[in-house]
């Protein structure tokens, strides 16, 4: 029972981490809270759903299509709603308000066109079970966890090794300076949104398979904000650690205490971290980001 709870927790935590990584990436480069991230996750899930039901594609292609779709949506979102604010060097509060507007707009767009129905993905993994010692866990849970880890490791390599990754790190530290090192900021920011959107697509597909696809499913991103705060806003290893910790803690609370208490507990954790340790577990000193 313990191991099973742990694996379920890690699997949910892996999905939280995928969401938190994309959210954190945008936050650390542009220094604003991209509330439209949840809507991109939701749209990614719909793209995956369409590929799975209308075209009957297999899991791998569904995932790839959803990554590409959500990535492009995120880039368009930036180009249409944020880029002109950014170029005019508007305060980040304006970007945040624009992001909230985008979230509500995209959700209602889905209501108006696709409708409010709840959809289920086809059963990709059936009810396949992996047996580990005494307990058995679903293949989906193990897969979600492993895939989340692999994707985040890939992102880490990208950020630390490639030319573009290093430019992203320079941009995190000082955008103007980064452009004066010869980096095209518009292109760089599009890449950041493409990455964040790609991660949102993965999260959307896993969420959709695990639960259901519906217009407000993106609100689960609230959990990604909590995960990002626990790990330290703007830190990638922090987003991973925060996501996993939150997923595991939540699952243990629902199993051993009560599932009604789950969200009460999560948001209490958020407030406790903001009060006691605002930089999170692995975050930088908040004074560095001015």
């Amino acid at each position: 029972m313990f191991l099973q709870t742990l694996i379920t927790g890690l699997s949910i935590g892996g999905i939280y981490a995928l969401m938190a990584v994309g959210y954190s990436l945008v936050f650390s480069v542009l220094n604003f809270s991209n509330f439209a991230h949840g809507a991109v996750i939701m749209l990614g899930a719909y793209v995956g759903l369409a590929l799975a039901t209308k075209l009957s594609l297999g899991f791998g292609l569904v995932l790839a299509g959803s990554i590409a779709g959500a990535g492009i949506i995120a880039v368009l979102n930036e180009r249409l709603a944020y880029s002109s604010l950014r170029r005019r060097k508007a305060p980040s509060l304006y970007l945040m308000i624009s992001a909230m507007g985008c979230a509500v707009f995209l959700e209602n767009l889905v209501y108006a066109t696709i409708g409010s129905r709840f959809y289920a993905f086809p059963e990709f993994f059936g009810r396949q079970i992996v047996t580990l010692g005494e307990s058995s866990v679903s293949l989906l849970d193990v897969g979600a966890f492993v895939f989340a880890l692999a994707a985040i490791l890939g992102l880490h390599l990208f950020i630390s090794r490639t030319r573009t990754g290093i430019a992203i790190r320079a941009g995190v530290s000082d955008m103007t300076m980064c452009s004066l090192m010869g980096v095209d900021l518009d292109r760089l920011i599009s890449i950041v949104f493409l990455l964040a959107g790609g991660f949102a697509g993965v999260a959307g597909v896993f969420l959709g398979i695990k639960y259901l696809v519906y217009p407000t499913m993106g609100w689960v991103t609230n959990k990604a904000y909590i995960a990002a705060v626990i790990g330290g806003l703007g830190s990638l290893p922090g987003a991973l650690a925060g996501g996993l910790i939150l997923g595991v803690v939540e699952t243990f609370v629902s199993v051993y205490i009560s599932s009604v208490m789950r969200d009460v507990f999560s948001f209490t954790l958020l407030i406790a971290f903001l009060v006691l340790r605002p930089n999170g577990l692995l975050g930088r000193d908040s004074e560095e980001k001015v």
């Binding site: 390599l157 573009t164 010869g182």
Partner: peptide, 13 residues
């Protein structure tokens, strides 16, 4: 220096 260099993305990764 890195931004001036043409680097192979996958090789770097």
């Amino acid at each position: 220096l890195l931004q001036r260099e043409k680097s192979n993305f996958f090789a770097a990764l």
